[in-house]
Amino acid sequence: MKGNINWFKYSSPQTFYPLAGTLAPWFGALAAVFGAAGLYIGFFVAPTDYQQGEAYRIIFIHVPAAWMSMFLYLVMAFWAGAGLMFNTRLSGMMASALAPTGALFTFIALWTGSLWGKPMWGTYWVWDARLTSELILLFLYFGFMALQAAIDDARRADRAGAVLALVGVVNVPVIYFSVQWWNTLHQGASVSLTKAPTMAATMFAGMIVMAFGFWFYSIAVTLLRVRCIVLERERNSEWVTEYARDFR
């Protein structure tokens, strides 16, 4: 979600609400198109891998999901930080709206990673550096969401969540490298997913297209969730009661 056109014009929930409403379907449609294209490339265009047979096709959702889990955490930390700095309510709402989708993609990355590990290495859980970091990233997401759920006052929840997200985003590289170090110490680099199959052009294309599909999907879902949060948090303000006049 890059910056809006005119930064402050859309920074109030009231002006942002309709904009989110119009944009969400478009991004949803884009997500569907790119997702379908990604699937098509993944299953019908990409050749069979000589080494891993058909099982490697899981890579077309595992890697994009892993990218998205990391990317969404960074975007969430950005919005949370912006909310803390500029004291804008909407940024806090954006951060809270991004968290569940980020956590979902992290879980998908873990699920597909373990299902891919079984045929390749015979175990559902491989203590690979990246998979372990994904697991810790999942805990960071749960921590963020649990903290926000536990605090009643919305303003304090946003600001406390922002501090946690910023501390988390600083720690993610440290966690990754310490897990990397830990992995090489105990197992050496023999068992790990880092050795992706040789990247034929079509395989890479499939992943990129699917990644875009997931990205548009995240934007659409986040915009929808922001609208829900706006309705829930601003329900006493005049514009919401005015807006809700024609609700059945």
Binding site: I136, L140, G143, L164, G168
Partner: peptide, 20 residues
């Protein structure tokens, strides 16, 4: 419990390097 959930992921690097 919430404190544990927030803080344990951040303890991971210290645990790994310490025990390591």
């Amino acid at each position: 419990a919430l404190l544990a959930l927030l803080v344990l992921p951040l303890y991971v690097p210290v645990l790994i390097i310490g025990a390591g």
